[in-house]
Design a protein around this nucleic acid. Sequence first.
DNA 1: CTCCTTTGACCGTCG
DNA 2: CCGACGGTCAAAGGA
Length: 295
Amino acid sequence: MGDDDWDVGAAVRSCNINRPDNVVAPKLDLETSLNDVWNSFDKLFAPDITNFNDLSEIFSLDFPTAHQEKPDDQVIIMNQNVACVPPTTTTPKEWIDLQQQLDIGANNYPNFTFSMETPLIQTRTRKNQSIRITYELFQEELTNDIWTWSKYGQKYIKDSPFPRNYYMCSTSKLCEARKKIEKSPNDENIFLVSYSGEHNHDPPTNRRNLASCNSSSKFKLPKGINILPKTSTLNASSSSSKRIKCSRDVASPIITTMPPLEFGNKNKMIVAAVEDKGDGKEEVGMNEDILMGFE
DNA sequence: CTCCTTTGACCGTCG
DNA sequence: CCGACGGTCAAAGGA
């Protein structure tokens, strides 16, 4: 497969996160028991928002049953669409109540859409996992990263024809920041970029690789991103520097950026997996780099 | 020489 | 307990 095949084209999103813009969301008279969710949301992403009226953004709630048993809470922001997965402490009844409220809201606001399914949110969250934020990016957006990363692993993930590439911050060995890049199984024009951990240092200023992130490599895949599907490789399992040669020739040498986080940007998705601290009080912590994107 | 990538092996978590 | 799976390690090789 030629590298030109990875050029960004108009993406036809098949997932259910696409929703119309400029729709006023229904007022959600949420149950007190869910305040933690929205407090977390407000704290993180919408500190000035006190209700859901008069918003240009669309807010919705997604409650995948798959997460009922999981220990982590998730807050999902997709472009102007926001979906919050409530804490796993949320009871089924509370979910039903919320669904009813959403139904009411949908009746009042026909253009407001929401889903009770979130097929995109199929990430397995684990104990001790810190915040994970996933962006849905086009290829040319992958080069926008102020950080330097080193690839330390690659895996083919179940139910996805594309391998997942693992990166760690190369600026400091003590830095716990991690990054994962994979192609969306739903749309090969879209890359799912996940960040976890926090940088414990300032962004690199004199990056050796900065130059190579410029023009010539623009719109090319970052170096090391190997996203050829299984079916196009000799062996389905991991392997082969042969494939790597293919991308190396055209890729930008390093992924060097935290992608822009902005409401209103098209085709952005953010998934924040929040670690359950075990005391029943989830704590949403995000580093400043992440929050900057919402200013 | 240094840094980065590759890739099989290993480990921890989950069901 | 065990297998599946995701994530990480580390030696080797390349740029």
